[in-house]
Design a protein around this nucleic acid. Structure first.
Lengths: 132, 132
DNA sequence: ATCAATTGCGTTATGCTATAACGTGTGCGA
DNA sequence: TCGCACACGTTATAGCATAACGCAATTGAT
């Protein structure tokens, strides 16, 4: 999918996520954008929906947060599965694509005649820096 | 981990989940247990916390729901990763363990010196029955 | 040019998910 | 019998997400 021109709200949300050191919740984004005129959660969620659709933002289901795609130049959808390692100390996220894991899961799904549409692979733990 | 005797509330919640055809949200469980005296969400969440700890129940992060472990005789923790295929039509869930995927992810995490603690692999789509 | 359809936007209200904080009772070992 | 751990019950609150309404701007076909 090619990413169309972002609207004002979409750009504001995307910029916040791009500059963030860690994933942000929708309400945290809302708070950071109050000075820019944001007043309601829906303004954030609507922008996020589009950014997710364009593949430039990921939703981290296990922590109800959102993060800018770490590989914006490639097309995340073509990667198939995307995995995330989420540090519970510092909050930082590593994004990871692996075709082996991808194929293995897809083969199993195929054997079950299951049509996959969206996937979530999230590992929570502690990153190298925080495992002092 | 060996599963201790369940308390009354834990048993009630576990039985509901065991009999359910699909994952249930905490509030759905609450509603189903009102006749048994449940009145507040915490009664459900506290039971769920223990059942999760014992490994007899899984939390599906992507749909905020809970499901009884499909392989109660084995120890889910020793399986390493557990994957779920969740049908968005009928709600049914297939549970799946694969050492290949497991090792591959763990190797990558190890190379990043990331200490994994909890993992989530959830694929949403449509099952064979619902892909008419 | 005009009308209809689409899309984004703003607002209010609401619903769903999860936990904090308090107190009670029970069982059990020191 | 004292103290501790644990399960439980209740009220209140925090955090996450969407429904439903209406308005404005854009586009594109007639």
């Amino acid at each position: 999918m090619t990413t169309p021109m972002l609207t004002k709200n979409q750009s504001l949300v995307f910029d916040i996520l791009t500059r963030a050191e860690a994933p942000l919740s929708a309400y945290t984004i809302l708070d950071k954008l109050r000075d820019q005129g944001f007043r309601a959660p829906l303004q954030v969620y609507r922008a996020l929906d589009k950014l997710l659709e364009y593949g430039v933002v990921h939703r981290l289901e296990s922590i109800n947060s959102f993060v800018a795609c770490a590989h914006p130049h490639e097309d995340c959808h073509s990667h198939g599965l995307v995995a995330f390692a989420i540090c519970e100390s510092c909050g930082q996220v590593m994004e990871f694509h692996d075709h082996e894991v991808d194929h293995r899961l897809m083969d199993w799904l195929k054997s079950q005649k299951f049509k996959a549409e969206k996937s979530t692979i999230e590992i929570r733990g502690h990153c190298a820096n925080c495992t002092a």
